[in-house]
Design a binder for these strands. Structure first.
Length: 192
DNA sequence: ATAGGGTTAATG
DNA sequence: CATTAACCCTAT
């Protein structure tokens, strides 16, 4: 009689503990600003058992391993070499406005856009910079990359990489072959 | 909005 | 596995 009561109590306690864990987890996720769908999957995993729960905790603490894959978040448009899901080491802001490429704070399939610059684009960038000068990225975006996927920040970053790669004396091995004249222009602009 | 430090996918 | 290039974060 009494034993049964105790077991019942323990069982209830366990269930309550699960609830507490999930509550804590949900709170943590507030900071991560994960998408609801992903949080749901994680809660399911927490419920599944200690192994899955450990997985979740490893990820929260920034330790991997890669979890069981969620259904792919991106819709296949712009498909590229099978992106691997992994944990993100730090919380990211979920940008729900950029739908298919939305970054999941804990797990994400891909960056929004990982497309490599073409020589043509670089040429255009250099044209723009020689017209407006270094640092006028929004102006450059508006005038030279109006419809392009490249954002003003992208332009800035690309210019930085160009400097690193092609500036006089750089020992870097470059992945994009540029015309000598273009490299020349980059070096000229870099000098200023 | 930009500069500059950091992270990480992709490449060799 | 080391490096490069694309992208992210954030103080100013």
């Amino acid at each position: 009689m009494e034993q049964q009561a105790i077991y019942g109590f323990l069982g209830e306690l366990q269930i309550n503990l699960q609830f507490v864990r999930i509550a804590i987890f949900s709170l943590q996720m507030e900071n991560y600003r994960a998408r609801d769908e992903d949080v749901d999957v994680w809660i399911l995993q927490l419920l599944e058992g200690p192994q899955e729960a450990a997985n979740v905790n490893d990820c929260l603490s920034g330790d991997l391993p890669p979890p069981s894959p969620l259904p792919d978040a991106n819709d296949g448009q712009m498909a590229r070499s099978e992106p691997r899901r992994r944990c993100s080491p730090y919380p990211r802001q979920a940008d729900t406005s950029v739908s298919p490429w939305t970054v999941n704070p804990m797990f994400y399939t891909s960056r929004k856009n990982n497309s490599r610059w073409t020589a043509k684009e670089v040429e255009r960038l250099v044209q723009g910079i020689s017209k407006f000068g270094v640092g006028r990225w929004t102006k450059l975006k508006q005038n030279f990359f109006k419809t392009s996927i490249r954002t003003a920040v992208n332009l800035k970053d690309k210019w930085r990489n160009l400097l690193k790669a092609y500036q006089e004396g750089s020992q870097k091995t470059t992945q994009l072959e540029l015309e000598a004249s273009l490299v020349e222009q980059i070096r000229k602009l870099a000098a200023n």
